[in-house]
Amino acid sequence: MEIISDKIPIPGGSGKTVGEPVVRFDNVVKRIGRKTIIEGLTLDVPPGQVYGFLGPNGSGKTTTIRMMTGLMAPSAGDIIICGHSITGQFEQAISQVGAIVENPEMYGYLSGYQNLLQYARMRSDVPKERIGEVIRFTGLEHRIHDKVSTYSLGMRQRLGVAQAILHRPKLLILDEPTNGLDPQGIRELRDYLRELTRSEGTTVFVSSHLLSEMELMCDTVAIIQAGRLIDVRELHSEADADTTVETAFDVDRVEEALVLLGEEIGIIRDGRLVVRTNRQGIAEINMRLVQAGIAVYGIRTLTRSLEDQFLEMTGGGHIV
């Protein structure tokens, strides 16, 4: 396990996007009482990305997001959003931000629509049509005029997303947004976040402890543990034609298959034939197996998931 000293800034940049960082954490420290919750976080979030903020329970994700949204003041350091300090120029900084912080609590005695109106009234750039738009997007059309107290957890989460994107923020901060959403909702949100970054250039900062989730939606992931940034890594969502990956073939006669392909090409693991090859290689091997009359039941790439790496890095996911 590699722990990088908090003195060394970890670049959050990627080769894909250029430009001023949308969020710049400058040696941010948060102490509550005697406890140091965030220890010298220095990080740049580049524009136009879905940026993941990953950490086990209690690692300081929500605390960081509270500081980004001005709900908590950093004990030291500063956070710059779109060039404005969240502490010094709060109004300018926050006007670029839409957010869900932890659970999106709403006024239960108001309807979903009235809740959205509350937030729309606090800005001058939200026309009525926009409210209808976000309602349609979040799939709440049929229940939007019901009182929020009658909503399910997932519906509240959707309403939370609706209020966050209402004013088309440059920076969307979502604290565990998939919490409570059904698979359909998760999928829609994921696709929507991707779409947002593509079409409107929105930067999305999303926290989660659901690692598989992050792999599916993020361009870059910053990993935090016990208030320290321990790694920043880029994820490649689209498989590269030339990258070789370990691939497992689930076949009926595995020994025979290995002999057929050549002993040096792969190994047998857990009753499967594991080969390291690229996309083209996978297709060719499959063809040879089938032509030799060996039934292929399944083919699966065995890239070590971020989850494995993450658990390794954070020491098995103990709550700290």
Binding site: T69, G70, L71, E91, I94, E102, M106, Q163
Partner: peptide
Amino acid sequence: SRGTIKLLLIRPWS
């Protein structure tokens, strides 16, 4: 107590 304060304070108002 409702937690709505969070969504109220993250608007461009002091």
